[in-house]
Amino acid sequence: MIQDKPNTPSAPRFHWSDVFETWGGLIALVIMAAVCSLLPATRDSFLNPENILNIINQKAFLGIVAIGMTFVIISGGIDLSVGSMIAFVGGLAVVLMKKIIDSSGTEWLGVLAACAIAPLAGMVLGWITGLIVSKGRVAPFIATLCGLAAYRSAVLVLMDGGGESAFGVSSFEAISSTNNGIPLLNWTDATGREIALHLTWPIIVFISIAVLGQVLLSHTRFGRYVVAVGSNETAARYSAINVDRVRLITYTLIGLCTGIAAVLLASRLSGIDSSNTGILLELDAIAAVVIGGTRLSGGRGRIWGTVIGVLILGMIDNVLILASVSTHWQGLVTAGVILLAVLLQRSRSE
């Protein structure tokens, strides 16, 4: 007890808004799940292990990028370039892989190179963005807007406007296959077919990065510096925090996440399409972060919130498909859910 002088005793008063501020995202997720499991149109198809795993698997790529985005946003930045970057570094990886396999004939060498080059290229690009933002003092919005245009253009040039397929490179396609990973259980689906459900590699990677991200954010010096820089940059500088370096690392980190996601995505799609892959990914990632309760202006945020945000976005897509609602509705529903989640989590003190 710090209060040595007896202040007026008064119990902390309970406020619903405090509960929502912290748990709003989770509450929204649970309510949505409950509704979907009760609605006649989706009752049977929604709440079963196959479908749930499917949702997570579908959005694992987005989730990995969104965790990088959480760091960037908490530090007071933004990254609009991830959608183009995922296509570019993914494309780079696939092209390189094909070249190596064609010239050397050894498939594993090509696959290994692809798995290495995408995260590496992502890191380098992120690091460059970080330099432009921190040393070059260019606003993150502008710097990454340039990235959005440049990387898309670069991948279009690389593939001459078309795509590069990884079809037939079976060990590459296997990475994101739903038949790979950690076996969970055997499941009889609606048609009576028995299938073995797996915790797929994208899911495993997503969960691992989320756990690492949470630890990094809450329990390491770097994580605390990210929060401090986003909350008050001047005070951070006076506290001997190397603000430029913190910024640089956050952008390198999101580049790395995007690179990892690129490998998984390229494997899942069996290639990269230069004009379509990753379009609007940046907005989905930002949406997931914001639904998760991270403040868009920085200084406050949480990784597990972003994970929930990703799941909510995945659930919206999934349920609309299950209920055979036209995909044209998707934007409206998503907009409504984002607004609702953000309204729920408004802080009482602001």
Binding site: H219, R221, R224, S231, N232, A235, G299, R300
Partner: peptide, 25 residues
């Protein structure tokens, strides 16, 4: 001087985080 929206603990230890463990605080 301060990060107003961070906690007292956060502020008090911010300039000296090195002293609170590595890699985990």
């Amino acid at each position: 001087g301060l990060h107003l929206d961070l906690s007292i603990t956060e502020n008090t230890t911010l300039a000296n985080l090195r002293a609170y463990g590595f890699p985990l605080l």
